[in-house]
Design a protein around this nucleic acid. Structure first.
Lengths: 130, 130
DNA sequence: TATACTGCATTAGTGAACTAGTGCAGTACG
DNA sequence: CGTACTGCACTAGTTCACTAATGCAGTATA
């Protein structure tokens, strides 16, 4: 797991997305303990608070639950929640695009076309602004 | 034209998008003079610099051109540029969504489904966070 | 109970984005 | 030339998101 400090995406969000992906992919099993705040902070060379912020986000999404003094664990409904959350995010992104397209007067056909075009080009790492 | 100061979207961007929409819709004709910085600033009760920043964005997009001492005018290729620009923005938004969906492991069929779902619900003003 | 782990709350520093204040430079016109 | 408009450049203040430093509170184990 690598953190890109130069990215415009905040660190805590990168971490959250990484773990979210991991849970979604089944790397972390339900009720399994996640790396502790300090352990992960040490590994990634960031402040424990940054890690906590990432975990907070995941907790709000119902992906993990925390036990004070024990640790953080993967929620049972994590995969379901992860999918649901991802779907919401995706939907939101699409809604944004559609809103833009509509306000520009693009007809639905054109919007569909642009979408298909985007979906077609699979390999596109648009991340990383210096 | 109204400005929402409570929105998380910066004022200059709201203005830019409004004018962009206006040009795209044909409200402003090519070579027609746009409201001066101070005039529009007075009308919207903001600083002229904020207006200028909006115009800068539009100029970068090739929508308007400026003549020092004369004013700001709609570019001839404005409509074309506006469409192109909008299409880029839309494409970017879609790409974001697709990227999210992929990293969550959603299959393409599912992605298409979510998109269609978003496109279906036409009226959705998701703006305005306090 | 002492120790060593866990999450959590409070506060502070830093940097970037946004907006505003002010003055300079170019153009048209009487 | 002087006036009144135009865009533009420079500087400063404000706000907010992000990250970090530090200390408190809960839990297991010897």
């Amino acid at each position: 797991m690598s953190i890109n400090s130069n990215s415009h995406v905040p660190i805590f969000r990168q971490i959250a997305e990484h773990i979210r992906t991991g849970i979604s992919a089944g790397i972390y099993q339900p009720d399994e303990m996640l790396p502790s705040l300090r352990a992960l902070a040490l590994e990634l060379v960031v402040n424990p608070n940054t890690i906590q912020r990432a975990y907070e986000e995941l907790e709000r999404e119902g992906l993990v639950y925390s036990r004070r003094g024990l640790g953080l664990f993967v929620a049972r409904q994590a995969v379901r929640s992860a999918r649901s959350q991802s779907q919401d995010d995706v939907e939101k992104a699409f809604a944004d695009g559609i809103r833009l397209a509509r306000s520009a007067g693009l007809p639905d056909d054109e919007i569909r076309h642009v979408f298909s075009k985007s979906l077609a080009r699979k390999m596109d790492k648009t991340g990383g602004k210096s």
